[in-house]
Design a protein around this nucleic acid. Sequence first.
DNA 1: GCCATCACATACGCACCGTACGCGAAACGG
DNA 2: CCGTTTCGCGTACGGTGCGTATGTGATGGC
Lengths: 196, 196
Amino acid sequence: MVGKRRAEMMEETRAKLVRAARKAFAEQGYAAASMDELTATVGLTRGALYHNFGDKRGLLLAVVNQIDGEMAAQARAVGARAGNAWEGLLAEGIAYIEMALEPEVQRIVLLDGPAFLGDPSLWPSQNNCLQETRRTVERLVAQGIVKPVDPEAAARLLNGAALNAALWVAASPNPQEVLAKAVEAFRCLAGGLLKP
Amino acid sequence: MVGKRRAEMMEETRAKLVRAARKAFAEQGYAAASMDELTATVGLTRGALYHNFGDKRGLLLAVVNQIDGEMAAQARAVGARAGNAWEGLLAEGIAYIEMALEPEVQRIVLLDGPAFLGDPSLWPSQNNCLQETRRTVERLVAQGIVKPVDPEAAARLLNGAALNAALWVAASPNPQEVLAKAVEAFRCLAGGLLKP
DNA sequence: GCCATCACATACGCACCGTACGCGAAACGG
DNA sequence: CCGTTTCGCGTACGGTGCGTATGTGATGGC
């Protein structure tokens, strides 16, 4: 600890707060999470919070951006692993459904994020995972595999469908069975984009 | 006012509070809306609120149920007006997109509702507008028009896609143009449910 | 016409957020 | 090497809002 520069220390403080926030927001929800408790769990006070993130929303923003980035990376990896471009799009969508089962993703990014930060497209992160899907759709349109739809619109609807599917699966008593149904229905819907 | 019975009076105060809540929640969001202000605008105090709805969430629940019911009725009406069952499903979905442009629907039912009340399927209203879509899908499956998918799953994904489309449209600078794209993409996706 | 009920108002305590200010250590210039 | 400035963070304060406990006046049965 002693050998570190100020910038490193500050970055470490930010990281600690973000880590604690991911836990607290996921478990209690953004509104119910107390900043006094949150900061205390990592040996700090609210002073550090307001100095680093401006306010409570600023911390939520930082957390959302971090998780969003992780999701986009995961989606990209899954898509790249697929046999062809079309299977890649399906794999990405299904990956979103499965990722959204994680409490951190569901609670923070899908529920509290839009409610307290507004529409995802307005986020500074520009919603990486949505952009990822959009680019995939663009490629498929260019290759003539899918109908010439607006890529942004298609990406929006696909992500929206996936997100809602995940909420459904998470709330169900037997997630495994419901997940299978959701994935099946998703494949079905997405097929509507394919050229005849 | 004098000639009314107690039950009528109580129903009237409930209605007044719900009306005020629709306005306040839609304009400021659930979290930011002050119950002191809200009740004062209709000449009451928080006492009336906690007596009639238990707590702040109870009021949100009542508001959500009311709007949800209106949405389901609207969807049913639009669906019935369509030429055939398949066009009815499309019309319902598009109607959801357009309804979700209303701030009361978007802010209260789509953003704050899930965030503060949990998954819509857990709401006491049983999410009427989702049930409406599910029944429509069931009919289409029975008639052999759409593939034998799980009706609940299909309804979930369709509604999710519509909701996300609406958020996108509402946040865009030129809603008219974007709405057209969203509707087009929705028709496309929904087509994936049709039997070949 | 008395009394129980009840819808709603009033009053209180508590939690929490945001801000202004204080402090001590690190960075910096000479 | 030392004085000074910077700055990351802690501390203290005020304001606001929720939930609950208690009071009250009108209503409706008997």
